[in-house]
């Protein structure tokens, strides 16, 4: 198992290095290349010599690999670069925004699991019942609604139609606004949750259906296990595997969804910053946030992989065997 963990860790580092190289190359594709920040800092009247001098000051004139090396070293020191548009370090922007997005995404994720996992199980248990068809139908429609449209429709119905929930998330910058003003979070979290439920409940239904036809489930029934024990002990635990893997993979999508939700509900967070950064050509900021999400994803996949070994002893043995 230890050998497996070490191999997985090395894999993760390699993947992260590739993400870094990729995102490091992106600024070269700007219209003015990597010198673009110089133009926005020095203004339109800067001469070519000014631009080059400014670039030399920040090491832009070094070869690609020297810059890449310096960049990686800087990253290891927690230096994500400098946002020239906002005039502060990317690290400080990320640090103030991370808690808000993580609160939003995590609460939506937890709620999604609490709803989608039982829903998928019940659907699989009562396959081809009215309940199953209704669940599948709703999931199908939700899956086809773009997140911005879903947010808009929820606002129309629950903010301006009935209930009169707040149509804006709290703009208070403190991350604990979630607790001081929970009502304002209902709609943003509901949007993300509904989108998540659409995908995960269907996936859970499929996973349970796959497990239900396995020999060991039949054996369990044959040896006289109670229906409850077959469901929880044999079916549920085995169906959990694919869901855990899916959760690790779903992290980038979760942040993507957060981007839209933050934009619609005027909630300042990572997605909001990334979107505005992209609009303003503030690449260091966008890349910094992208890298952070990539780190989250890689860690999430790693955690999912290790958790898989915990819920499924067979995988543990398989891994230590080789």
């Amino acid at each position: 198992m230890l050998a497996y963990i070490i191999r997985r860790l090395i894999q993760s580092i390699v993947v992260l290095l590739m993400v870094i190289v990729f995102s490091f190359s992106l600024p070269y594709f700007q219209p003015e290349g990597i010198y673009t920040p110089a133009y926005s800092v020095l203004g339109t009247h800067a001469t070519h010599a000014n631009i080059l001098a400014w670039g030399a000051q920040y090491g832009l004139n070094h070869p690609f690999f020297v810059r890449l090396w310096n960049y990686i070293i800087a990253l290891l020191h927690g230096n994500f670069g400098f946002s020239y548009k906002q005039g502060q370090s990317v690290y400080s922007i990320i640090a103030t925004n991370v808690p808000r997005t993580v609160w939003l995404a995590l609460s939506a994720l937890l709620l999604t699991l609490v709803i989608a996992v039982p829903l998928g199980m019940i659907q699989a248990q009562r396959r081809n019942s009215v309940f199953d068809y209704a669940g599948t139908g709703v999931a199908f429609v939700l899956y086809a609604v773009p997140s911005f449209l879903l947010a808009f429709l929820l606002i129309q119905v629950f903010a301006f139609g009935i209930l009169h929930l707040p149509s804006q998330a709290p703009t208070a910058l403190a991350p604990w606004a979630m607790f001081t003003n929970p009502v304002a979070f209902i709609l943003p979290v509901a949007t993300l949750t509904l989108l998540g439920v659409a995908g995960i409940s269907r996936f859970m239904r499929g996973a349970v259906l796959d497990v239900m036809v396995q020999d060991y489930v039949r054996t369990a029934k044959a040896k006289g296990c109670s229906a409850r024990r077959v469901l929880w002990r044999h079916t549920f635990r085995n169906a959990l595997g694919p869901i855990i893997t899916l959760l690790g993979l779903a992290i980038p999508g979760l942040f993507g969804g957060a981007l839209i939700v933050e934009d619609v509900f005027n909630y300042p967070g990572l997605g909001y910053q990334a979107y505005n950064g992209a609009l303003n050509g503030d690449l260091p900021l966008v890349i910094g946030i992208t890298l952070l999400v990539a780190v989250f994803t890689v860690l999430g996949n790693l955690a999912a992989d290790l958790a898989l070994g915990i819920v499924n002893p067979r995988i543990r043995i398989e891994r230590s065997g080789k």
Partner: peptide
């Protein structure tokens, strides 16, 4: 590596 980059970003 590609899959860990948030697609929308």
């Amino acid at each position: 590596a590609f899959l860990s980059i948030p697609y929308l970003f």
